[in-house]
Amino acid sequence: MKTKIAVAVDDLTVAYNYKPVLWDIDLSIPEGVLMAIVGPNGAGKSTLIKSILGIIDPIAGSVAIYGKPYTKQRDKVAYVPQKGSVDWDFPTTALDVVMMGTYGSLGWIKRPGAKEKKLSLEALEKVGMLAFKNRQISQLSGGQQQRIFLARALVQNAAIYFMDEPFQGVDATTEIAIINILKELRKAGKTVIVVHHDLQTVPEYFDWVTFLNVKHIATGPVKDIFNDDNLTKTYGINYKVAVQQ
């Protein structure tokens, strides 16, 4: 059985002022996986996602989403940025932020209407935040803000979801709620790609994993490649030995 390739990255190289952040990345992600991208700080995990999404211009290489360039496939892709990337004191409500997920399909100038509002309320319900719909976003806890971002991506109803550290700074309840939603997405045949920091939970949460440290180290099923060898190659230390100290 041959699965479709959802995301194909070819020779991608990104640099900030002469210093390479991603070096010659080749990566293909099959459809329907729940994949973690792991690597140390500064490994270029967020940068990889951002350059796939066209937020950062790579100096070389190309990206294909289901065989076509990203600009032609925007409706198939949803993005959950890092929570800290926006100002949560912005004067708006939770529902309003989730509605932003509908702006892409609306296009220029057209305003969201009853249909968009209904979709947004459904997404809020899915993440357990319906009761907070009219809350000013600064009055939400970190975990609640993260759920709002997740709801905004759910509204896009995409085939591929990119998430930048969705578990950062959230409590155990929220983490479980989020991972359950991600697993549901995978069951529905979606591809979910998550920048992840907690190595302990990788085997439990994900079925695929990519090791990254400026260069691409390995990609594959967690049960096959999530081992000491790859961890050492990625983190430069024998991870298991280091933990036991």
Partner: peptide, 22 residues
Amino acid sequence: LLFWKEFKLLLFDKNYAMTLGF
């Protein structure tokens, strides 16, 4: 009034606005 939605999106989350194709 015309670009209200776009202005709001850009002010709140510029990167996200980019990924939506604006």
